[in-house]
Design a protein around this nucleic acid. Structure first.
Lengths: 154, 154
DNA sequence: TTAAGATAGATGCAATTACATCTATATCTA
DNA sequence: TAGATATAGATGTAATTGCATCTATCTTAA
C-alpha cells in the first residue's frame, strides 16, 4: 500500500470530468440561445440587464461601481466601460459621492427602468423556453443545489 | 377558469430562475479559477486545449476546421483566428485537403502534443481542486444528468 | 455545359475585453 | 502629521471576438 494512499487525488474522476464538460457546454448553449433572443428583439446583452437589475434591487436605486462589481462578477475595467456605454445610452448616470472623493454613485434612470422591463419580458420568456420547459421545479432545485456545492469556496 | 389555463407558462418559476443564475455564476467562477491556474503556469487558455484535445482524439490526429467547430462550439471566424495563433505557435499546421479544394486539414504537431500534455497536467489538477474536491462521483453524475436535460434541443 | 446556389474557410473592420497603469483620495503607522 | 500603503475608478493600448463579406470551390438543376 502506498504511503500516499490517503492523499487527495490530484486527477479528476471520469464522472467529475463529464460533469465539468457538461457544465461548460450547457451554459454556453443556453446563454447563447438567450442572448440570441435578446438580440433578435433589438435589445442589449444580458450584462446590461444584470447591471440594471442590481440597481433596481438596491435601496434608492443606486450603487457604487464596486458594489455592482461584487454582485455581477464583472471585472473592474469592464464594468467601467460598460457603464460608459450605458450612460451614453441614457440608462444610468454617474454622480459624485460626497462621502468619498474617489467614489461615484451609479443611478438608474427612468429610461433605464423602462429598458429593464422591456428586457425582462424577453429574458423571462427565453428563460422559460430554454430552461423552464426542460426542467421541472424539483429538477431545477436539485440542479441549483449541486451547483451551489460547486461554487462554495473551499 | 381561463381559456388559457393549460397553455405553457411564459414566465419562469423562481426555482428555474435560481437554477439559471446559479448555472451562470458557477461556470463563470469555476472557469475563471481554472483559466487562472493555466495562466499562472504560463500556459495558453482552455480553448487551445479544447482544439488540441479534439485533434488528439481524431483518427490520424487531424480534422477539418468545420469538424473542430462542431465539436468545440467555437464560431467559424474565431476558430479560424485561433488556428492562426496556434499555427504561429507551432502547435498545429494546416494542410491542403485534396478531395475538396476549399478544405484544409488541421494537423497536430509534436509540439502540439507536448503542449497538450503539459496543459493537461495543470488542467487536471485544477479540475480536481475546483470540481472534484467539491462533488463526489454520485453528485457529479447527477449534475451531468440534469445538465444533459437542459442542453437537449427541443 | 452552365448559371445559381451552397459550402469551406479567410479577412477587413468595429466592438468588446484584458492587462497594465494612472490619478485621486483615503487610511494607517511611525 | 508625514510618508507609506491601500482603495476607487478611469484609461491607453493590445488582444480577442463579433459581424459582415469575400474568395474559392463544389453541387445542382435547367
Amino acid at each position: 500500500m502506498s504511503a500516499y494512499s490517503d492523499a487527495a487525488p490530484s486527477k479528476p474522476s471520469v464522472a467529475v470530468t463529464r460533469a465539468w464538460v457538461r457544465l461548460m457546454r450547457t451554459q454556453q448553449i443556453v446563454l447563447a440561445a438567450i442572448e440570441q433572443d435578446l438580440k433578435a428583439a433589438g435589445l442589449p446583452p444580458l450584462s446590461w440587464y444584470d447591471v440594471l437589475w442590481e440597481l433596481t434591487q438596491a435601496t434608492e436605486e443606486k450603487l457604487r461601481p464596486y458594489e455592482i462589481e461584487d454582485r455581477t462578477l464583472l471585472a473592474q475595467h469592464n464594468l467601467s466601460r460598460l457603464l460608459d456605454r450605458m450612460e451614453k445610452a441614457g440608462l444610468v448616470h454617474r454622480e459624485i459621492f460626497s462621502e468619498d472623493g474617489r467614489g461615484r454613485w451609479v443611478v438608474i434612470t427612468e429610461a433605464g427602468s423602462a429598458m429593464r422591463s422591456r428586457m425582462w419580458a424577453v429574458y423571462a420568456s427565453a428563460l422559460q423556453r430554454h430552461v423552464g420547459d426542460k426542467l421541472d421545479d424539483a429538477q431545477a432545485g436539485q440542479l441549483a443545489e449541486l451547483l451551489a456545492l460547486l461554487s462554495r469556496k473551499s
